[in-house]
Structures are given as C-alpha cells and as structure tokens.
Write a protein that binds this DNA or RNA. Structure first.
Length: 458
DNA sequence: ATTCCACGGGAAATGGGGGTTT
DNA sequence: AAACCCCCATTTCCCGTGGAAT
C-alpha cells in the first residue's frame, strides 16, 4: 500500500496542497511577470478595449496561479510524491487523459508546491516526445537542455547519456524530467526503464531523478508493456474531461482578469461551459469559445457579451481551430497541398484527384522553394492532411475501367484556410488569385470574423 | 473468373547533420 | 583528409491488393 502514512511526522503533502491550491500565486520562474515592452503595449491597449481588460489569460502560456476543479487528481499526485517528501527517491509518474484537461497545469503546480516541502533544489526539464520521438532524440534534447555544452545531431548516444547523468550528479539538486506526448513514441512505450538504467550506469549514488510522463492517449496505460507500468516506483494517474461545473470555475477564474467589469452577461459562462462539457470537456476549447464570444461582442460594438455572441462563436469555433491548424500545425508542403485542394474545390465545385493535386503541386512547388516530388509522395502529404482532419475523401471504384480511385475535398469551411494561407505567405495569395479564387469573399466568415485579426491580439 | 489500376505499406535510397579512425 | 560509422528525415521504388466491370 503506497501513499500517505497517517502517522508520519513529515508534513503531509496532500493537505498542504489542498490549502495552497487555492492561494498559490505563480510568479517566479516564468518571464511573464517581468515588465517588458510587451507589457507597456498591453497597457496601452487596455484603454482601447471596452470588452476585454486584457486577452492575456487566453494565451497558451498563461498560468492563472491557481488550480481549480481538479481536487481528485491533485490528491493522487500528492500521494505519489509523499515518499519523496519523506526522504525517498523521487517517483516516476505517468499521467494521461485527453488533451486540454489540466495535466500540465497540475504538474507545474505540484512541482512548485513540492519545492517548498523539500530541501534540495528541484530542476525541471521538459522534453516533447512529439518532437523528439525516439530514445536517441530524447537523449539529445535532454543533453542540450541539461548540460551547458551543445551537442549536435549525431553525437554518440553513450556520450550523451554520460553527460546528462554526470551533470545531474549533484546532491543539492533533484531533477524531474517531464516527457510530454508519450504516445508519440509508439508501442515501445515510455523509455523510463532505459533512462533509469542509464542513470544507474553513469552516475554515482547522488543522482536523483524522477520521470514524469504525460500522454494525451488515455488508453496508453492499456497497451504499455506491463513491466513498465508495474514498476514499483511507477505511479499512474488518469485525468478525465471536465464537466460543466468544473469548466465554469475555470472560465470564471480567467474571465475575472480578462474581461472588464460587468461586460459578461450572467448566462455567458454557464453557456460556454455547458456547450463544451457536452462536446469535449477541454478547458482550452472552453476558453477559446469564451474569447471568441468576447471578440464578437467587441466587433459588433456591443456593450455586453451575450448568449447570442456565444451561439455565433460556437459556430465559428471549428473554423478557428482549422485556422490554427493550418497556420501552426501544417508543414509548408502540407500547406501548399491544402491550398491547392481548397482552390480546386472552390473553382470547380468538386473534389480533386491525387493526380490533379500532384500536377498542381509540381507546377507550384518551385515558387515555394519546395522540391518537385513524385505523386506517391504527394499522396503522403494528402494522407497527413486527412489524418489532421482537414479533408474528406470520396472513394469510388471504376472496376476494370481503372480500379479504386479517391477524390478529396476540404472538410472545413474554406474561409479559415484561405485566411490562414494569405496570412502565411503572399505567394499563397498570388496562387489563389491566379486560380481565380475571389479572395474578398473569404476575408470574413459568415459571422464576420477575420481569424488573422483575431489571432494577432496581444 | 478475369481484368484493371489507383492505392498504400514497406524497403531501400538519398542527403545531411555529425563523429572517429587511420 | 580520406574512409567509415552513427542518427535522422524525406523521398523513391516496388509490389500485393481490393473489388466493380467485363
């Protein structure tokens, strides 16, 4: 039985966490509290914004300093770390659950509180496994983050391991390594064993190091190798989507800072919470919806944000996500492919075959500084777009006359893609003009939103 | 039953980061 | 400095397949 010993003389992490969870202010390590030029500009904006006080709480890197609506998870995390507070080695933790439901927030928060409970200095290093998706690349990223020297691609893995754990070999410090997007590593699973083994090989007894895995794939626990999951030092924690009540408290926390006094009509936050609770339960989405609602109110020069704005915002949420996907998650090759498909759909009113996509790609790639590629490769780009949820495919089989064939069309409204394309590069604008796509029709959505303007807020 | 070909999985090649040995 | 090795991403090549039309 692992967890808190009731007779322990050591401070009880869990109780303390619960207290601090509601009072703690996050302000030390992040740069966001240092006065910067950016802040000066933000202050200028305040006077111009009637609806928003500031839009900072809606940014990805914003941290409200308090954790709400996650008592149970905090509780479990507290147990996982209790042994460490009692003087044992730091634990390995694996936390999973759908994206946007508070995993990172809780871990950051917990480590901060933990720092006040132990004497050693906690050093936290984060590695994104989506970017560094093999064990070698994780070592490489770690070496570059932890050690003062720079280690280029191709550095011998053994040297990397040695450098990392030598560097960590410091009795006054305890390292926590956060591995995000564990699911990106595939079936091999989190390299906890590998890492711990390397640790014991290359370091003397002083090296203290805990690994924290984060995965968006809640099923990951199911298909991970048993010996990884059931290691005695390994704790697994699962988080679940937020319900409407929890979303409400999260929205209120952010809205208090973001919106001017009294501009939110009473039903706005409950409505946002209810809508998202029913769909995904993701805090990030709920916040997007709320921000979009406020933006629409601002656009229409309303004095208050109303339920009506929320309804409109809801219709635009998918488009906003498509815009973000296009501008932030697609590679240049995928973007070009996507724009080609969009333009063809609009001009011809029909789906497009990979042959045609490839032909257009061949013609256009030069002006985007991309290589000419064979159709097979273009198929891969198409597949990637499809996986990212931007395409619908229509399959048909012409039998003897040609076998199976597929045509593709955009699965989202064209406005966000076109806006995203134009915002990304003037070359896309020219491409669209040359294809006779009447751009002006798409610079605003049905609800009157220009996503480029929306996203370029402070 | 045969025929046809886009499709897509997977192996192999290419190219580019770098290190080490002789 | 030439030759060889490590690690990665991207691209090309090869080939089995599905299934309606014939």
């Amino acid at each position: 039985m692992r967890g808190v010993c009731p007779h322990s003389k050591q401070p009880n992490v869990r109780d303390d966490l619960m207290l601090r969870a509601y009072s703690f202010i996050w302000q030390v390590t992040t740069q966001s509290y240092r006065p910067t030029v950016e802040h000066v500009f933000q202050n200028i904006h305040y006077s111009q914004m009637d609806i928003f006080e500031t839009r900072r709480p809606f940014r990805d890197d914003y941290n409200p300093g308090r954790v709400v609506a996650r008592d149970e998870t905090i509780d479990k995390m507290g147990s996982a770390f209790q042994d460490f507070v009692d003087g044992y080695r730091p634990p390995d933790v694996c936390i999973c659950g759908d994206s946007g439901i508070g995993k990172r927030t809780i871990i950051k928060h917990l480590l901060k509180v933990l720092q006040t409970k132990v004497e050693t200095e906690l050093v936290v290093t984060t590695v994104d496994c989506a970017e560094h998706n093999t064990i070698y690349k994780i070592y490489l990223a770690l070496a570059n983050k932890v050690c003062p020297d720079r280690y280029p691609n191709g550095t011998n893995p053994l040297l990397l391991q040695e450098s990392i754990f030598q560097e960590m070999n410091d009795p006054d410090r305890t390292h926590f390594i956060i591995l995000e997007h564990l699911e990106a590593l595939g079936l091999e699973g989190p390299p906890f064993n590998d890492l711990q083994q390397a640790r014991s090989t290359y370091s003397v007894e002083n090296t203290e190091c805990g690994f924290i895995g984060i995965s968006n794939e809640s099923r990951i626990l199911g298909y991970l190798p048993k010996d990884v999951v059931h290691k005695s030092r390994m704790h697994t924690i699962e988080t679940y989507p937020y319900d409407a009540h929890q979303l409400r408290s999260i929205l209120e926390l952010h809205a208090e800072i973001a919106f001017a006094d009294g501009v939110l009509s009473e039903s706005v936050i409950p409505k946002c919470a209810a809508i998202i609770a029913q769909e995904t339960g993701q805090a990030t989405e709920a916040l997007q919806l709320l921000e979009l609602s406020g933006y629409l109110a601002l656009q229409s020069e309303a004095e208050q944000v109303t339920e009506d704005h929320v309804s409109k915002a809801r219709n635009s949420l998918i488009q906003l996500q498509a815009y973000n996907k296009f501008t932030k998650e697609l590679t240049a090759k995928e973007q070009l492919t996507c724009v080609i498909i969009t333009a063809y759909n609009l001009v011809n009113g029909t789906a497009i075959t990979p042959d045609d996509i490839s032909r257009h790609y061949r013609e256009r790639c030069r002006s985007f500084n991309l290589n000419q590629v064979k159709i097979r490769q273009v198929r891969n780009y198409i597949q990637d777009l499809d996986n990212k949820g931007l395409l619908d495919c229509e399959g048909y089989n012409a039998g003897r006359g040609g076998g199976i064939q597929t045509k593709y069309k955009l699965s989202v409204p064209p406005e966000p893609i076109i806006q995203g394309a134009i915002a990304t590069s003037g070359r896309f604008k020219r491409l669209l003009q040359q294809q006779d796509v009447s751009i002006n029709k798409f610079t605003e959505t049905e609800e009157g939103i220009d996503f480029t303007a929306f996203s370029s807020r402070q």
